Amino acid sequence: MFLIGSVLGAGGALLLVTGWLLGDPGTPRGDALKTGGLAGGAVLAVYALWINDRRRRTEEARHEVERTRAQQDRERTENEQFAKAVELLGHGADQVRVGALHALAGLARTRPAYTQTVLDVLCAYLRRPFTHPGYDLRPDNPDEAEPEPDTAWPAERIAEADREQQVRLTAQRLIATLLPGSADEQAPRYDLDLTAAHLEYLDLTGCRLGRLTARRARLHGVNRFGGVRIQGPALFSGATFHGRTELSGARFDGGLSVLKAEIKGAWRISGAQVRLFADLRTAVPEEQLGALTLIGDVELKVDDDSGWATRSGP
């Protein structure tokens, strides 16, 4: 319909302009026809521009619909992958559980919006009840334990615990890889909840996170927090540190609590800094290397005879 109107408009412009110019005796007939033709062509050109603009808008709308549909399909696929991976964490085979953990970590890397959720799932897995004969024999260094089968720990149960131990170590390593580096000021703040978890050889060296909750956790072997930056509270209340703990250069910007914790191994705290609060109401570590630096106006809670080494910083 608009095409017919444009053609009629172009013809009308041709006749109108040509007739108007022919009414002037000084205008040659050829010039009048040429000018009229240009006027009619201009009308058709406007129509062509309108058609192109309409076609462009239609294409853009179609592409936007396709992008939206593709995004929805991708999100649906990722949600299905997430749900499937979580389901497989309960599988009886340890290889399947390890694969599920890696699938969750891969999803978090490709979709940062999933990172905190994946970290929550990994932490929840580590909070599941677990024990190992090595924790009884060498709680400070389970790697050196050599459990022998007995009535409490038959060979089959030891083998099962060994397999689950490897799954849990995988979860710990993946948590560390998903956390940003301590020097990345623009990185999101991810929280970890390891309440009552059995951990061994946990290594968060140089990581940055928000809140760390490890109340009543059991830490076996050497656990490394050197250079870590924790911007929220770091809560180890009631935790047990069986082995050596590396805290050199750590920054507890949101405060630190070891209230009623049991620290059996060495604590290396040279260069470790605490802000806001430090609840040290527990027995001093058997071996304390360095002093805890208190930055600013820190609310310090410590037993008079604990023997904690602290100093004031700038």
Rank of each mutant, 00 (worst) to 15 (best):
A155S: 11
G40L: 14
K301L: 15
P154V: 09
A250D: 02
A152K: 09
D120G: 12
G26W: 05
I263R: 06
D253S: 11
R97V: 00
L212A: 11
A234N: 03
P139R: 11
E80I: 12
T205C: 13
T245H: 03
T213L: 15
L259K: 05
T58C: 05
P188S: 08
A100R: 00
L276K: 12
A283G: 11
T18E: 13
L259M: 07
R168T: 04
F252H: 04
K301N: 11
R56C: 07
P25Y: 06
A152I: 08
V298Y: 04
L199I: 08
L137N: 02
R211D: 04
V302L: 12
G37I: 05
A239T: 03
V222P: 01
Y114M: 15
P112T: 07
E200P: 03
L101P: 03
L174F: 01
W308C: 15
L174A: 06
V274I: 14
L122Q: 04
V222N: 04
D305C: 13
D136H: 13
A83K: 10
G221Q: 08
A108N: 03
W50H: 12
L199E: 02
P28G: 10
D73N: 10
A42Q: 01
P112L: 14
Q273S: 12
P112N: 10
D143H: 10
G232D: 05
I4A: 14
A176G: 06
L101G: 00
Q231W: 06
F82G: 09
S237Y: 02
A93N: 08
T282V: 11
T213V: 13
K264M: 11
L137F: 04
E78S: 10
A291V: 08
T77V: 13
I4F: 06
F2D: 08
E80H: 11
